[in-house]
Simulated scan of single mutants.
Amino acid sequence: MILTDTHTHLYYETDSAKLTELMQRSLDNQVSRLFLPNVDSKSIPLVFGLSEQYPQHCYPMLGLHPCDVREDFKEELAHIYKEANLRKIYAIGEIGIDLYWDKSTLSIQQEAFRTQIGWAKQMGLPIVIHCREAFGEIFEILEELKDDKLRGIFHCFTGDAAQAEKVISLGFYLGIGGVLTYKNSGLDKVVQDISLEHLVLETDSPYLTPVPFRGKQNESSYLVYVALKLADLKQIPIEEVARITTLNSEKVFGV
C-alpha cells in the first residue's frame, strides 16, 4: 500500500533528529510520497533540503502563499521564479487567495495568483490552490484563465457540494485532509457523494490534525487516519483508497 500526502509542511521541523523521526513514522505508516509546498522565499531552502535528503519520497513545489503576499511581493515572486527554474519542481504552490486574515491585500493577492498561474502554464505544471473565505474570488480568476493547461489541486477543500462540483468541472482534484474526520465539519457528507477519481489526500501538517490526534501537531504519518475515514465512508478497503488517490496524485504531478 502506498499513501500519498499531496500537501505537507513537514520541513517546518528544523531539529534534524525530530525531522528524521517524523519521516520514519510517515514511512512506517506507508505514507511514502510527500509533496512539499513552500510559503515564501525563506522556506525554499527547507523544502529543497528535505527533498534532497529523501529524493525517493519528497517532491518540492514552489509558490508564494497568499498570506505572504505583501508590499514586496514582486521581489518575492522574482526570487521564487528564479529558484523554480533552477531545480526540478512538481507544481506551483501553494498559491491562491486568503481573505480570512486580511482583506486589504486582495488586489495584490489577485495579481500574484494570476502571475503564478502564468508560470505554471509556461512550465507545464499543475497549481496547488490555497483558498480561505475567497472561493468566489478564486473562481473568477480560474474561469478567466481556464484552458487546457490549467490544472491542479484545490488544497484543503472544505466547501459544499456545489463548490465541489465547480472544482471538478474545471478538472481540478479536491485535496482532502484532517477536516474530514471532524464530527461537525459536514465534509463527510459532501465527500460521500464524490467519486474517488476526483480526490487526493493531504495532511497540511503541522496543521489540521485529524481525529484521534486533533489538538496536537499534525504530521504526515497521520494521513492514514484520513484514508481510514474515507474508506469507511465509501465502504471499501483502505488499500483501495490508497491506490486510487495515489494514482490521482501521479496523474496531476506526473510522478
Rank of each mutant, 00 (worst) to 15 (best):
H198D: 04
K103F: 07
K146P: 00
Y90S: 03
I244E: 14
K18G: 01
E202G: 03
L22Q: 13
S32N: 15
L228P: 00
F73Y: 15
H130Y: 11
D193E: 14
D204Y: 01
R151D: 02
P212N: 12
R33S: 12
E137I: 05
T203C: 06
I244T: 14
K42Q: 14
A164F: 09
G254S: 11
V47C: 03
S26T: 02
Q30D: 13
V167C: 08
D204R: 06
P37M: 01
L19V: 04
I238Y: 14
D160E: 12
E71Q: 15
F135H: 09
L233W: 03
C58E: 01
E133D: 15
D5L: 02
K18H: 05
L247K: 14
D147L: 05
G177L: 08
D98I: 07
H65M: 04
L196H: 09
Y173H: 08
Y11K: 07
N218W: 01
G93T: 07
I117M: 12
L19T: 03
P45L: 06
F48P: 03
T20K: 15
I238W: 15
F35P: 01
Y11N: 07
K103C: 07
L125S: 13
L196N: 04
S107V: 08
N248C: 05
Y54I: 09
A231F: 04
V224D: 13
S107N: 09
L99C: 05
E144V: 00
G136H: 12
E239L: 14
P66Q: 04
E83L: 13
F48D: 03
L46A: 14
F73M: 13
L233E: 12
R70P: 00
M123D: 00
E94K: 13
V191I: 08
E71Y: 13
F139V: 01
K121G: 07
V31S: 09
L228Q: 15
